[in-house]
Each structure stands twice: as structure tokens, then as C-alpha cells.
Computed example of a mutant assay.
Amino acid sequence: MFTGIVQGVAQVASIQDKPGLRSFRLQFPDGFAQDLGIGASVSCDGVCLTVTELHGDNAADFDVMQQSLSLTTLGALGEGSPLNVERAARDGAEIGGHPLSGHVDFKATLATVRQPENNHVMRIQVPQPWMRYIFAKGYIAINGASLTVAEANRAEGWFEVWLIPETLRMTTFGDKQPGDTLNIEIERSTQVFVDTVRDALDERLGPLMPALEALLRQQGSSPEELAGPLPKLKGLS
């Protein structure tokens, strides 16, 4: 498990392709790998990887399966590429972000970047089926960093996060440009809640669900919002 508090930026030192997988050697910031052991877990841009070999105090090897390469941004990394890293949380450690598994759910695209004074706003375009799990003020993990959703637009399929200077200093986000791809892990308790509500509605309403969903979409709502007060439907008394 990870906390989503990025501990530094590593660089890809070398890449070696092997049958069925790709091996990365990562160069870590000073002090990051102290007491790191073979078999330890490290979040690399939000992907949980296992140390397979150590090289001194600041470098380690990781093997990544083809499926992980295709489902995450790791497949696009080259030598010199930077990535956010965090070591696995220890018992009793302060959870400054929110619990993360290191299992990326999907890739999203950085749509725009705005830079108001002392802030850095990223708008992220999301594949539509995943927007049901993203709510304003809720947690989200982007490239392994625990962040709070500032705004979410389900109809247009995007959400925004605001980053302070310290987050930019400790992560790779300051270098990201529109069009870049990001790893996203949704908050698990939100997923469980939303899926439970959807399953309950589907079980009870059955054949009526397609018509109800279409009606709710016309009103700018969704089945998930039925977990709270029912939306007021136009034209109905």
C-alpha cells in the first residue's frame, strides 16, 4: 500500500527488453533507496513495481509485464524519463494522502494547463465510463500522487486538480504538457459505493434502467446521484 505522497523524482537509467517483459533500471534521489531490499514495492508513476536487483544505494531494477506496459504510461518511457516514486507505506506511518494500491485503472490525457498566481491547474480528459467514479472534493491518484478533485464535469468527461508549488517541486507535474498521458487510480471506497448503488438500481429497476438513465442524462444527472436526494426532473410533478 502507498499513501500517495510522492517522495521524489527518479530517472530511467536503462531499459532492457526480455521475453514477455521489460526491465527498467531507475536512478533514485539521494537517500531514497536506503535500506531498500529485493522484493520491496515501489510506486513508479503510480504503478506498484517490485525491486528485482539493487545497484548501490541509489539504483534498482524492476521488471514490468507486457500487460502493464500497455495499460499504463510505463510503456512510453525512455532512458532519461522522469517519474514520481514512493516507497511502500510502513505500519504506523502517517497517511498524508489516501490509501493507494498502485494498480492503475486507466490512462487519461492532460487537456489543458492554467497557471494562476502560485497555482497550477491541470484539466484532465477521462474515458467516459470512468467519470462515474470522479467527484468534486473527492480523492484521485495521478501518476502516484494523491490529489483532491477541484471540479468534475461528467457531461464533458473531464476533471481539474490544483497544484501548489510544493507539489510541483516534488513531482514531475510541472513538466507535463497538454496531450501527455497520465496514470489514474480511482479511490477504491468511491468505486465500491458507486458500483453498489448501480447494482442495487439495476436489480430493482431492471428493464427500466435504460429509460431512466436516458431521462437522467437529459436532466444533467446520473444514476449515482440517486444515492442522495432525488434530482428534480423537468416536466414531472
Rank of each mutant, 00 (worst) to 15 (best):
R132V: 05
P82C: 10
I95V: 14
A200S: 12
A155H: 14
A214E: 05
Q27T: 09
L74E: 00
N153R: 12
V12T: 11
Q11T: 14
K137Q: 10
Q67F: 00
A60W: 10
I164H: 06
L236Y: 14
G37Q: 15
V192G: 03
P29E: 02
A136P: 13
P127V: 08
E94D: 04
W162D: 15
Q34N: 14
E94Y: 09
D63K: 00
F2E: 10
Y133H: 09
R204A: 13
D91A: 15
A211N: 02
G75A: 06
K18E: 11
R114L: 08
G228R: 04
P207A: 14
R198P: 01
S23R: 15
T172N: 04
F159S: 01
P231L: 11
T171W: 11
F193D: 03
T148D: 07
P19S: 03
Q128N: 11
R114H: 12
D45Y: 07
K232S: 15
I5L: 13
A145H: 13
S43T: 00
L168P: 01
Q219T: 09
G220S: 08
Q16M: 13
N58M: 08
D105W: 10
L54C: 03
F106T: 13
A59P: 03
L215C: 08
P165Q: 02
A10Y: 05
A141R: 12
L71M: 14
M1V: 06
I38W: 07
V149P: 00
Q66K: 01
F24N: 04
P210M: 09
D195S: 10
E185M: 04
C48P: 04
G228S: 07
L215D: 06
L71G: 00
D180R: 14
M122S: 10
S146M: 02
G75N: 12
P127N: 06
E203P: 01
P165W: 00
A227P: 04
E79T: 15
I164S: 03
S68P: 02
D57G: 11
V64P: 00
E187T: 07
R188N: 05
Q115G: 06
Q67W: 00
K107G: 12
P223H: 01
T172L: 08
E94R: 14
G75W: 11
Q125R: 14
L74H: 06
S14G: 05
P207S: 11
W158K: 13
F106W: 11
P165C: 04
G138N: 02
